[in-house]
Design a protein around this nucleic acid. Sequence first.
DNA 1: GGGCTACCATGACCGTGGTCATAATGCGCG
DNA 2: CGCGCATTATGACCACGGTCATGGTAGCCC
Lengths: 235, 235
Amino acid sequence: MNAEVDVPTARSVLASSTLLGSLSPEQIDQLLVRSRMAQASRGEIIWMDGSEISYFGIVGTGFVKMVRTSSGGQELTAEIMGPGQSFGLLGAIEGTGCPLSARAVSTVWYLRVSKADFLTMYGQNVPLRDHLIRRTTLRLRGAIDMMSRMASGRVEHRIAAVLVQLAESYGVEEAGGSMRLEVPLSRQDLAELAGTTVETAIRITSRWTKEGILKASYRSLTIQSTSRLLEILGD
Amino acid sequence: MNAEVDVPTARSVLASSTLLGSLSPEQIDQLLVRSRMAQASRGEIIWMDGSEISYFGIVGTGFVKMVRTSSGGQELTAEIMGPGQSFGLLGAIEGTGCPLSARAVSTVWYLRVSKADFLTMYGQNVPLRDHLIRRTTLRLRGAIDMMSRMASGRVEHRIAAVLVQLAESYGVEEAGGSMRLEVPLSRQDLAELAGTTVETAIRITSRWTKEGILKASYRSLTIQSTSRLLEILGD
DNA sequence: GGGCTACCATGACCGTGGTCATAATGCGCG
DNA sequence: CGCGCATTATGACCACGGTCATGGTAGCCC
């Protein structure tokens, strides 16, 4: 474990935050007083859903998945958060427990920000609230999109949709126009995102690899032909 | 069509609104200037998703469903709005088109409120924004719940979940402890809520009727045994 | 390197639920 | 009242995908 060489500083993480990066230097200092960097390694649970937590997180490096454990015991991943994104705020404003568990997808360094500190700042800062409304609205829209995908039945569609969405957020252009997902996703992770089983996720990725749509290897996916994926989505 | 006898007044609808009912009398007057009551009959489309509309709605009497049309053409109902609830606000704040179509479930009288008027008031009214954040957050949580239900596979569970949720919002206690849903739901409507087909919805409601869990008739459902439904949800 | 564990892969089996067909019933309307 | 349409109902068929079982492979730690 030599990941300690590049631990991001609390300040740099806060500055890179999509939500809080635009705060004034004084406000940032204020939040930093009681914020601490923390680490979690792959698979580690950062918090369980329902629990009351005094902080929320901002991803510095690595990836976190927000997971809903259904009554049947199977896990559904609602979202994957990458560097600069904050997670666990939903419960902070409501004051109720977090509706989603947070689990590290890769080794992740994240900043723990005190909810209480954030809330006092939030109370005094109207632009921040406006920003948050817009963000929540967008997430709601995304959730509605995802819902209609989930209901659409065919697993192929769902997986294609998940891949396209992931590519938008975390795709890295490679030689030959292909897109590598920088999230280290196992087939299990992919299955949880699409609401299906590992076996089915494997079957579909294997087939698509043979058809030249994907390049799949150990915990890694590269999209070779986005257009073919969109085709699968469209028909 | 003799529904005209009890058309609610614009003022009464606004006053009954869960979102705007707590505004000051002056603010209500201000919103009323350019608000008009409108009617839609069962099945009628109030607006299509994606379209730019200058107003949002508040239900006076009757019910409206918010529908997402997926690429496959099948409709998924995200929410059912009843008296006092507002719909179409999501797009108002973003300024983007509405993500969901609105369609009347029954004959419905609703108030059309100008988005522009609302937005100016919204800009000056911090408590209103706070209220809206809370509301949006709750909806997001509901959407996440629904997502995990949708992904859970078995249609039986999804239908049971939908019925329980509907009972919470629109259930009327009847003699013998049963709950009648005051929403005039056809099996088709139920199917769209649960993300399944009419046939399956009919099969399940028929079976449950035989088992004494439900009483199903023409566009109407009465839950006889909530505990049995919760049992189905739980296992 | 050897062994362990997580991950990937593939096949067999079969139940759920979608699709299609067909019909009975309820409700509105001329 | 009787016609027509929407809704409810039920059966036959079968594909998709979940479950189980088994084996190969890649990374990782000692």
